[in-house]
Design a protein around this nucleic acid. Structure first.
Lengths: 215, 215, 215, 215
DNA sequence: CATGAATGAGGTTTCATTCAT
DNA sequence: GATGAATGAAACCTCATTCAT
């Protein structure tokens, strides 16, 4: 019984190492089992296949990420409408910092998902998060345009802005190792993004620099 | 005689297809040869190994890209100092469009290099281009700060901005299939980037939205 | 169940045949598997690689050889001092015959190791056994010279003599197929070797023919 | 025209290097041609195949060796009968030194033939030289026994002695790099061999140490 | 719960050799 | 005299996966 968990846990830990180190495609199930001191049969008792193993390894990180993103962007629906208009970035900055903090707590795994998951079902994960954001912004701008009587920004701008936000996180993660520095950067970034949002409603024509978040 | 070029060409064409379709790691030399109706020995007559084959397949695209980027960013050194200060983005927009046009002419290959080249020597190519830009911006801001007697933006900002420009191209490529639409978008983006540059010198504190586009 | 041992055993047997017949370098793993009616994957389940397969095939023979040589040359340290001086070869002859008997019981494999193992880690195995002997003779002559107050033979003589003994075995093996004849020959040879040892201490100048057999 | 020889010569030189360095089996014709800056077709113009190339590379060395051995062992027939009986080794020593000198002038190639020619037609070359000697000794002992009315040594003794002489050379070559030292050693060795020969006729039973060359 | 065995297809690379030109 | 192209076989090895036990 004490081995029941032990084996699965060992497997997960070794799989994690192998995936992070070699990337999904080059990771070897045989190697993982060897490291874990277990036969491949054991692995296949717990996991259906390579993909499933990765899902198990990345699951926790991924669920947490989903949750925190959803939390962040559900809250926004209620409160951001006002603050966004007022150009107040403080809440967004707080949200971004929380997400970033989470990302850095799962640094290796997140980095894997974003840059080394080619060949797995997660190879387009950044896009999927962007989609979440896009839907969110769609609802948000819907609300805003209804309240203020101004036209919604066009679809592509929303699409773009969503990806940009994700990319901002990806970029920071892949280029800034220390969380502290990252937190400094994210503050600047969000400021611009929010300013961009404000601009997206204020009319891009008149004032480029205050308009669409430049990315 | 009719086969002289045919075999190598066939090989390159089939390799191209295979690489683009499956990515570098999953592409199979055997499969390539089979498609080309040739033995693997023939492949190894023309190419040293898988990496070399990829180099041959991507070579043209890559050389052209290098050239156009270098052309673009050499010109900037001479002329951009003024225009950057004046907030005039027209020249930059023209450059960006030219680059983008090139990228779309080599759409599939560029996309491969940026997103499916994991495992090959090109897996960090985006970073390498960003480095080129970074060096360029380093020289450019050097000039500007000398002429205007204002301090250079800090190193990290330059680093960041360089990556951001590359990412902008990557992003457009990976998310906008039609060149026409892409050209529209790039115009907006560059405007903000240029505005950002102006801001990077003008001081971020006073005017967020006109500041350096922090991505 | 009936196949449990069968496969590995079959593999070992076929590998043995292939190695002996073609030599290490020309032996083909594919061929071995084909002969064994097994896929290459099966081979690689039991053995890490070609070298490991050879080690498994030759292991038993080699361990036994090591053991018998060590046994022989450990005994010598205790008893040979006297007999060597007395020119009594009877014990050495007995030892040599035992070793030779072992070699002939593993005739093919030993012959392989000595003449067809090029390219494997055993390609210098004769030298390695010679080294064992050299160290042994070094200790032995140390004892003798201490007891008798005569100078040790020079280093090169020891080196040479060690190789000579090994070569004697190799030579007999490679040129005399029947063990009976070989046993006759080894008797003569050892007599001379022992006489040679006596000579090496007695002074070569005075009596060449009784001196150390310089090969 | 100046290239005619040049190409063949270059090929031979590079082949020599490759063979010596990697051994026959691991030597690569492709590698040889590459080093020579020539295509494989060119190689096949001059040489029928790998074996033929080796023959061309080793030819000179081998012919010379054949010649010097034959010269040595033809002279012996006439003169050695007496000296052998008288136990005079001086002529043999001189012969051995000449052969050894030749071997050291062709050190690398000889070493290759003796230890790295596995897989080629030369893999048993030492045996072939031993056969030459054996035939020679057969004739020699025939003469001697006729003149002196003593029985010929048995066939195996002749066989053995012949191999021993060859082995003496092989062993020196593989274990003594400097010719000077080798010449010292060969002197001792030949003395014993000659003494052995004398003993082979004088009766092995009575005097072991003067009898069969101990090796 | 896990082993141990085995599959079968596939991977990249290297080889000696041939031959039309 | 030599090239350049191509063959075809074979090399060693690794993979994810399956399954009876």
């Amino acid at each position: 019984m004490p081995d029941e968990k032990a084996t699965k846990e060992k497997l997960l830990e070794c799989a994690r190492q192998e995936f992070l180190e070699k990337g999904y495609l080059k990771a070897s199930l045989r190697g993982i089992c060897q490291k874990a001191g277990v036969t491949t049969g054991a692995l296949y008792f717990f996991f259906r296949n390579k993909e499933d193993l990765l899902a198990a390894v990345a699951g926790e990180t991924l669920r947490g990420l989903n949750q925190i993103i959803r939390a962040h962007f559900s809250r926004e629906i209620d409160t951001d409408a006002r603050t966004a208009l007022a150009g107040d970035a403080s809440e967004d900055i707080q949200s971004a910092k929380e997400i970033l903090h989470y990302l850095y707590r799962h640094y290796d795994m997140v980095l894997f998902l974003l840059t080394k998951s080619q060949g797995s079902s997660y190879e387009t994960i950044a896009d999927r998060f962007a989609d979440v954001l896009e839907q969110h912004y769609d609802r948000l701008t819907e609300q805003l345009s209804a309240r203020l009587g101004i036209p919604k920004p066009d679809r592509y701008i929303l699409h773009w802005a969503s990806h940009m936000q994700i990319d901002a996180f990806v970029h920071i993660l892949t280029h800034v190792e220390e969380e502290e520095k990252a937190l400094e950067h994210i503050e600047q970034i969000v400021s611009y993004l929010v300013a961009g949002w404000a601009g997206a409603f204020g009319g891009r024509k008149e004032n480029h620099s205050a308009g669409f978040p430049s990315r």
